[in-house]
């Protein structure tokens, strides 16, 4: 089953990276503007990058389909199918991203549309998770899926935003307002990790007490992938920790080491979440006769 799911791993992760980063960037924009910083030259390239990222995500998702030529029909049943809604919302989010970028590019205010786009992004992530929650796969039919998807969105959003600042606006980055924003954002990310870790035992317990398929999922996770699971959390925690640490450690003396630290942190988090998503898919054992 698993080999066919690579497209979905990339679709969900890229999608969540795009949504999360957009929201954190918009929050940064809001905060920075309130502090009188108006020169946001990272904004347009970031929006463009996110647009491309989201487009790539959608293209990736196509590879999951057996008959791409029929993809057009995939929106028909949005009345009851979360998958149709997910595709629809992802498309809407992409369109809004394009619009946001276009408006921003023409130097007009994106105050209004950014809210709408952010809302569409959140809805997209919600739909992404709902697709899995409404299956008959016990490992997915759990609030944990929402937490995992939104968790990734938040964590990716923070590192994604950090990355955008680094890449598209290095000079502006080294101001105390940015540092202070990223500190706070780092705590939000840490919060997202902590919430997931708190729910994790609840989730595993529910698998243990669930249908045979649930127990098979659990066995699979513990027997074959215990180390991977541990690694997944260590990577994310280490990455998040490093991110926060670097902002604290060097808050006052912005040295040349920071960029390297942040790149490492971003890489750790990206890999950590990727591993998490991989585990999510392989643990998806459907209920069946048995």
């Amino acid at each position: 089953m698993f080999s066919q799911e690579w497209p979905l791993i990339f679709f969900t992760l890229f999608g969540q990276l795009a949504v999360g980063t957009f929201i954190v960037l918009m929050a940064a924009r809001f905060v920075l503007k309130r502090n009188g910083i108006t020169d946001l030259r990272w904004l347009n390239p970031s929006l463009l990058a996110l647009t491309v990222l989201m487009a790539v995500a959608i293209v990736m998702s196509m590879f999951h389909l057996g008959s791409i030529s029929n993809a057009f029909y995939a929106l028909s049943n949005a009345g009851s199918s979360w998958l149709a809604r997910e595709i629809l919302l992802a498309g809407v989010f992409l369109a809004l991203l394009v619009a946001t970028y276009a408006i921003s590019y023409t130097q007009k205010s994106i105050d209004v549309i950014s809210w709408v786009t952010a809302a569409a992004g959140i809805a997209t992530v919600y739909a992404m998770a709902s697709v899995y929650v409404t299956t008959i796969i016990p490992a997915w039919m759990h609030v944990n899926t929402y937490l995992a998807y939104f968790g990734t969105t938040v964590i990716y959003g923070v590192v994604g935003a950090g990355l955008c600042f680094m890449v598209f606006g290095r000079k502006e980055f080294f101001t105390s307002h940015y540092v202070s924003f990223m500190k706070k954002a780092g705590f939000v990310a840490a919060g997202a990790i902590i919430v997931q870790l708190i729910v994790l035992p609840v989730y595993l317990t529910s698998l243990a007490g669930g249908a045979p398929a649930a127990q098979m999922s659990l066995n699979l996770l513990f027997e074959n992938h215990a180390w991977t699971m541990l690694l997944r959390w260590l990577l994310t925690i280490a990455g998040g920790g490093l991110l926060i640490y670097s902002f604290y450690r060097y808050a006052d003396r912005l040295t040349k080491h920071i960029p390297a630290f942040i790149y490492v942190a971003v890489a750790l988090v990206l890999i950590g979440e990727f591993t998490g998503r991989y585990l999510f898919y392989i643990s998806g054992i459907p209920m069946n006769i048995g």
Partner: peptide, 25 residues
């Protein structure tokens, strides 16, 4: 109309839907 997304296979506890590899449906 089938796009071969396999959502139905994830939705059936009886293994009803079957993916026909050759057709992608």
């Amino acid at each position: 109309k089938c796009v071969g997304c396999k959502m139905c296979m994830w939705s059936c506890p009886y293994d009803g839907p079957v993916y026909l590899k050759e057709e992608g449906k």
